[in-house]
Amino acid sequence: MRLLKKYEFNGGIKGFKLGWSVAGPPLMTVYCYLFGNVMIDTAQPHMAKEVVDIARENKIGQIFLTHHHEDHSGNAAVIQKKFGTKVFGHEQCIIKMKHGYPILPYQKYIWGKTTPLDILPFSEKIETSLGTMIPIHTPGHSRDHTVFFLPEKGIIFSGDLYLGDRIRFFRADEDIGFQIDSLKKVANLDFDTLLCAHNPREKNGKGHVRLKLEFLEELYERVIALWKQGLFEKEIFRKLRLKEDYFTKYFCFGNVSMLNGVRSVIRHHENRA
């Protein structure tokens, strides 16, 4: 099944929701956003045909990547090759995209594999049809993660920083401590529209960011309190009555799970000690 839905957001921003599966509804979907000649993220490689058509029809001249993960960078190379489009990313994203990176079988199945390419560093301020756009480094979900802020419109393209008010599972390589710092940084900005790559919030975006921040701060504090009492990871998980999505955990070979959240908190705390 190939899913493509178009949405209109504040400021005339177009959002395209894309999903793919061998049969039945896609397990996961992702958005890419367009305004003027700008595209924010490029969706999954499995949907290359649709995304290339979108880029052609909208005369996309610049692509800005929130981070290197394959559901965000997946079609940057093919668009660049076909149209000579300039692609920009954080310095750590540039390294990842230049040399490529390994992915697990479930990632290749759901999204497809990203093609390496050379991308450019973005400037501190980017002039667009909606005014100045400011890239803000927000590590935690990945080291290169960046959000893009349109202060004149009160809009943030948040990549995977938000995802939801409460999180049911975490990637093994995520750092919750850094995510908390990044969410605090974004929560201090003046915006209302939060254009998340998986769960956009057109109204009260800042409120949703604060809800996620509160959720992660509470989780962090409770995990560390039990860790200091001498409990181990799985004991903490049971003590806090956290729930595991076992289908997701085993489908993703343990790379995505709620237990990873406990591990991330402990790892961050120990590294800062």
Rank of each mutant, 00 (worst) to 15 (best):
I134A: 11
G154D: 09
I167N: 07
K82M: 14
H90N: 13
T146V: 09
S264N: 02
V262G: 08
P102Q: 11
F16S: 03
L211E: 14
N37D: 15
G140A: 08
C196T: 03
G61I: 13
R272A: 14
K234V: 01
D175K: 05
I13T: 05
I176R: 05
M47I: 10
F247L: 13
P45R: 00
L194R: 03
G61S: 04
D41C: 00
I13L: 05
K212F: 07
R272K: 14
Y7F: 15
V209L: 12
T29P: 15
P105Y: 14
A187G: 15
G15L: 08
K113I: 15
N58M: 09
T115P: 00
K249W: 07
E127W: 04
R171W: 11
C252M: 08
P25V: 13
G19C: 06
S123C: 04
A55R: 06
I180W: 05
L34W: 06
L226C: 08
I94P: 01
S129R: 06
H67Y: 15
K14E: 14
Y106C: 10
R168Y: 11
Y162P: 02
F148T: 00
P26M: 10
K81G: 07
I236T: 07
G159H: 07
F157I: 11
P135V: 07
D53K: 13
H72D: 09
E8L: 11
S73V: 09
D190T: 00
L150Q: 02
I94T: 04
F35Y: 10
K243G: 12
T146S: 13
Y246N: 07
M1G: 09
K234P: 04
K234E: 15
S21T: 02
C32V: 00
G131C: 06
Y33V: 09
K17Q: 14
G74M: 06
I13G: 06
F215W: 11
S182F: 11
A197K: 00
N260R: 02
L117F: 10
E50G: 05
T132L: 12
P105W: 14
C93R: 01
F149V: 01
E217I: 07
